[in-house]
Simulated scan of single mutants.
Amino acid sequence: MSGTLLGLADEYERDACGTWTSQRERWALRESAALFRRMTCNREAADPTRHTLTHGMLIDVTERWCRQHGYRAVIGHGGCAVQRDNEEVIVAKVGETLYWDGHRITVAT
């Protein structure tokens, strides 16, 4: 993931934990951090041919990427399971990449 937006998101999260901030400021900082994370994940999922699973990836981003190719995805701790119709289940771990070849999804490390 992009270091710039994620770094900013982490900084905002740290600031939100500060004792000098009001509840309203903490809420605004956390909302901004979440927005930066979503922007980063959406940018990474924009490539229709490949999608790399990372720890920082938001769950719905991977689900949406798979759904765009006609697959269902179930996200769990450390990875996901992907399936279309009666095809065999594809299991991908964090760090692996899902590839779309125009007909089906495959996984590679």
Score class of each variant (00 low, 15 high):
Ser2Gln: 14
Leu5Ala: 08
Leu6Ala: 04
Gly7Arg: 04
Gly7Ser: 08
Ala9Ser: 09
Asp10Val: 02
Tyr12Phe: 15
Glu13Cys: 06
Arg14Tyr: 03
Arg14Gly: 02
Arg14Ile: 02
Asp15Thr: 05
Ala16Tyr: 01
Ala16Ile: 03
Thr19Trp: 11
Thr19Arg: 13
Thr21His: 07
Ser22Leu: 11
Gln23Phe: 04
Trp27Glu: 14
Trp27Ile: 12
Trp27Asp: 14
Leu29Thr: 00
Leu29Lys: 02
Glu31Ser: 09
Ala33Glu: 00
Ala34Met: 06
Ala34Pro: 02
Ala34Gly: 07
Arg37Glu: 06
Met39Gly: 03
Thr40Glu: 07
Thr40Tyr: 01
Asn42Pro: 02
Asn42Ser: 06
Arg43Val: 03
Glu44Met: 09
Glu44Leu: 09
Ala46Pro: 00
Thr49His: 12
Thr49Arg: 11
Arg50Thr: 11
Thr52Gln: 14
Thr52Phe: 02
Leu53Tyr: 04
Thr54Pro: 05
Met57Thr: 04
Ile59Thr: 15
Ile59Met: 08
Ile59His: 09
Ile59Asp: 15
Asp60Glu: 15
Trp65Asp: 00
Trp65Pro: 00
Cys66Ile: 03
Gln68Gly: 05
Gln68Thr: 05
His69Trp: 11
His69Asp: 14
His69Thr: 13
Arg72Gly: 09
Arg72Thr: 14
Arg72Gln: 13
Ala73Glu: 03
Ala73Phe: 05
Val74Ser: 11
Val74Met: 12
Ile75Glu: 06
Ile75Pro: 01
Ile75Val: 15
Ile75His: 05
His77Met: 13
His77Asn: 13
His77Pro: 10
His77Ile: 12
Gly78Thr: 09
Cys80Lys: 02
Ala81Ser: 15
Ala81Gln: 12
Gln83Ala: 10
Gln83Arg: 12
Arg84Gln: 10
Arg84Lys: 13
Asp85Ser: 07
Asp85Val: 04
Asn86Trp: 10
Glu87Lys: 07
Glu87Cys: 10
Glu88Leu: 08
Glu88Asn: 08
Val89Trp: 08
Val89Gly: 06
Val91Phe: 08
Val91Glu: 08
Ala92Arg: 00
Ala92Trp: 00
Lys93Pro: 07
Lys93Glu: 15
Val94Ser: 04
Thr97His: 06
Thr97Trp: 03
Thr97Asp: 11
Leu98Glu: 01
Leu98Asn: 01
Tyr99Arg: 12
Trp100Met: 12
Asp101Cys: 12
Asp101Trp: 06
Asp101Phe: 08
Gly102Lys: 10
Arg104Met: 13
Ile105Ser: 00
Thr106Tyr: 06
Thr106Asp: 09
Thr106Arg: 10
Val107Thr: 08
Ala108Asp: 10
Thr109Val: 11
Thr109Gln: 09
